[in-house]
């Protein structure tokens, strides 16, 4: 098992390598000259030359890549073109809101989706099942910003229950934190709920059709016990897998949600950086997001070895 874990960890290296090459090439595939963009509105030709030299844009590509990678290993992601601050600092500043929103979203999504999925599987073929599945397809189909604006309109403007925008750190109190985070998290969680509910329903249904469950039901074991002890436990692996795969969706959704709700997290930073072509930030963010994705999926793969002893590698 440990050999597997080590192999699994080593396997992330080529993945991150591919990401790094892509991220590096980003700046060099641009149609415009990066130095001209960086120099700004009123730059003179000599400024552009100077900036090009400062950034080492005159070196051959492989030397630039080597230097860039070397600095990366030292934790230096470069300096933001627009704000002149280190990219690592900018990303650190924005980490908390995004992490908290992602965690809240996952918690809410699991709390809603797993019971829904189990219920649908239990009531297979009835209107309850259909309603849950219709809801799940809707979750995939309605764009996140439409949901977000509808919620702002309803809960903030008409009912005046929740703030329209912004973020309060959890350090300033749980209630203010929740008041700000609840709408973005629910909007963001829609797709996630749909995804998890479907997979839960399918997995639980599969388990419910296994012989031993039928036996257990026939023996008259309490339904909830069957559901929790047998069905849900065996459905855990696919559910955990989908949470890992869903991380990519979540990261994408963060970009939209943070723009709508004006949350100063990594998603807003991404949009701002892309609209301004602040390449060092874009590069840093893609690295960070991809790193998170790879890490989460690594942890999930490793967790299988504990979750389901039947899986052997």
């Amino acid at each position: 098992m440990y050999a597997y874990i080590v192999r699994r960890i080593l396997a992330t290296i080529p993945v991150m390598g591919v990401v790094a090459v892509f991220v590096f090439l980003l700046l060099h595939l641009t149609p415009g000259d990066p130095a001209t963009v960086i120099a700004g509105d009123y730059a003179r030709p000599e400024d552009i030359v100077r900036i090009r030299e400062q950034l080492g844009l005159n070196d051959p590509l492989y030397i630039q890549f080597g230097n860039w990678l070397w600095r990366l290993f030292q934790g230096d992601m470069g300096i933001s073109i627009f704000s002149n601050l280190p990219v690592t600092h900018l990303i650190q500043q924005r980490l908390e809101p995004t992490i908290m929103m992602a965690l809240t979203t996952i918690i809410i999504a699991i709390a809603i989706a797993v019971p829904l999925g189990v219920l649908a599987a239990w009531k297979q073929g009835t209107w309850v099942d259909r309603a849950v599945m219709v809801f799940a397809v809707l979750g995939f189909s309605v764009p996140i910003f439409v949901v977000a604006y509808a919620m702002i309109w309803g809960f903030s403007i008409k009912l005046k229950w929740l703030p329209v925008q912004g973020y309060t750190p959890i350090g300033e109190g749980l209630i203010p934190f929740l008041r700000n985070i609840i709408m973005p998290a629910v909007a963001l969680g829609m797709v996630y709920v749909a995804l998890i509910a479907r997979i839960t329903r399918a997995s639980v249904m599969e388990v419910l059709n296994e012989d031993y469950i039928r036996t257990a039901r026939a023996k008259g074991l309490a339904s909830t016990t069957i559901l929790i002890r047998h069905a849900l436990k065996n459905a855990a692996v696919p559910i955990v897998t989908i949470i890992g795969i869903g991380i990519a969706l979540l990261i994408g959704g963060v970009v939209v949600t943070e723009s709508v709700f004006n949350i100063p997290g990594l998603g807003r930073l991404t949009v701002d950086a892309i609209l301004r072509r602040d390449y060092p930030i874009i590069q840093g963010l893609i690295l960070v997001f991809s790193g998170v994705y790879v890490l989460v999926n690594l942890l999930i793969d490793i967790s299988y070895t504990f979750l389901d002893p039947r899986i052997r590698y």
Binding site: P14, M16, V19, F22, I274, I286, Y293
Partner: peptide, 21 residues
């Protein structure tokens, strides 16, 4: 390996970066 690398980059991020490029 290349496919794994591409999959590790969130689709929206990858798409926006490509379009802006």
């Amino acid at each position: 390996r290349i496919m794994d690398g591409i999959m590790a980059i969130p689709a929206i991020l990858l798409a926006i970066a490509l379009v802006s490029l």
